[in-house]
């Protein structure tokens, strides 16, 4: 117990530790209070027209479908079409109809939109009279916001991994690891001491981040807390592994980068790809953050009943990693210099 108190004392002055746990909280605050990023423009079509070429009627008609930018000359219009960061559809008049221009490297959706635009212009009066029924569904953009928030929460949970890894590497570099070798400490006490700070602060960081980003019911909050605890524990143990296999801070940072990229990319890709492939799903669940992310999204989307599976997977991760660490510890030394 006293050992833990000294660990806490050393963390108090460790700016790196404090900043790494505050970072997700800062991002969560930015996400929450930025008034939600206006991503609506991301999905809209973008049109470019020439000032002296396009009829006002056509311009107004195009504005129904997306944003319209007016260029002074055709050369400017063509330069803007060729700009790789946008998918601008150039529109010019051709008699009573319109002509579209593309740079040739657009997505299929833009190609199709540009190919059908002249026909839509011809049919504009018929289309205006069409009967359209709009059905309500949850705001997609809020969904994107939830994905950002969930990803931030996952990062918060796994900050403990970074902290523990850096802690172990620092001990090896300072030679403190040698002292650990000869201390009369049981495996349980050693693991408890080593993972406590990473686990505790990972949980704390994630709880604060979650509280800022999401509004859940009492049951939901309880389920979220369980998710956080399990994920932070798995992450803390993984951090110990990274610390032990790294032979220096440089390699440690590289391993941490790779692990964090995998932790973030795998669940995101799995969620967005929406695949039914069982083998792929199983492989994704080998990364603990997959279950964590899925659990968060289920909670946020109101499908709390599916969370049981995610918790079971996380529990299996915790047990598995702890067992692996015990085997690793008993087969080699605690510090491999």
């Amino acid at each position: 117990m006293r050992g833990l108190l000294y660990q806490l004392k050393s963390v108090r002055k460790d700016k790196f530790c404090i900043m790494s746990f505050l970072l997700p909280v800062v991002v969560a605050v930015v996400l929450h209070f930025s008034g939600s990023i206006d991503l609506s423009s991301l999905g809209e079509l973008q049109f470019g027209v020439c000032a002296d070429d396009t009829a006002p009627e056509a311009e107004n008609w195009l504005a129904r479908y997306g944003s319209v930018t007016v260029f002074q000359t055709k050369a400017e219009l063509i330069r803007a079409i060729r700009e790789p960061s946008t998918n601008l559809i150039g529109v010019t008049m051709e008699g009573e109809g319109i002509r579209t221009l593309l740079s040739g490297d657009e997505w299929a959706i833009i190609w199709q939109a540009a190919s059908t635009l002249p026909q839509l212009y011809e049919m504009r009066e018929i289309a205006a009279e069409a009967d359209v029924q709009l059905l309500e569904r949850p705001d997609i953009l809020a969904g994107y916001q939830n994905i950002f928030a969930a990803m931030t929460l996952v990062v918060a949970m796994f900050m403990g991994c970074i902290f523990n890894a850096v802690n172990i590497i620092s001990e090896k570099e300072d030679g403190v690891a040698f002292i650990n070798e000869i201390l009369p400490m049981s495996f349980k006490a050693y693991v408890l001491q080593k993972i406590f700070i990473g686990f505790a602060f990972g949980c704390l960081s994630a709880v604060v981040t979650g509280a800022i980003c999401f509004r859940l019911s009492a049951a939901g909050a309880g389920a979220m807390l369980a998710l956080i605890i399990l994920s932070a524990l798995a992450a803390a143990v993984i951090g110990l592994f990274i610390g032990h296999i790294s032979d220096g801070l440089m390699m440690g940072v590289v391993y941490i980068k790779i692990v964090m990229l995998i932790f973030m990319a795998v669940p995101l890709l799995k969620y967005l790809a929406v695949t039914d492939n069982k083998v792929l799903s199983f492989l994704c669940y080998l990364i603990p953050s997959s279950a964590a992310f899925e659990g968060i999204m289920n909670l946020v989307n109101g499908s709390a009943q599916a969370i049981g599976k995610d918790m079971a997977i996380l529990m299996a991760h915790c047990a598995g990693w702890l067992l692996l660490y015990q085997i690793f510890n008993s087969s080699g030394s605690r510090c491999d210099i």
Partner: peptide, 23 residues
């Protein structure tokens, strides 16, 4: 008589989706 049915996205995109489908 064709009646377009779609879930809302953004206003302008919905417009295009509906007109495109009719075309």
């Amino acid at each position: 008589r064709p009646r377009v049915v779609l879930y809302t996205g953004s206003a302008k995109l919905d417009c295009h989706r509906a007109d495109y489908a009719l075309s």
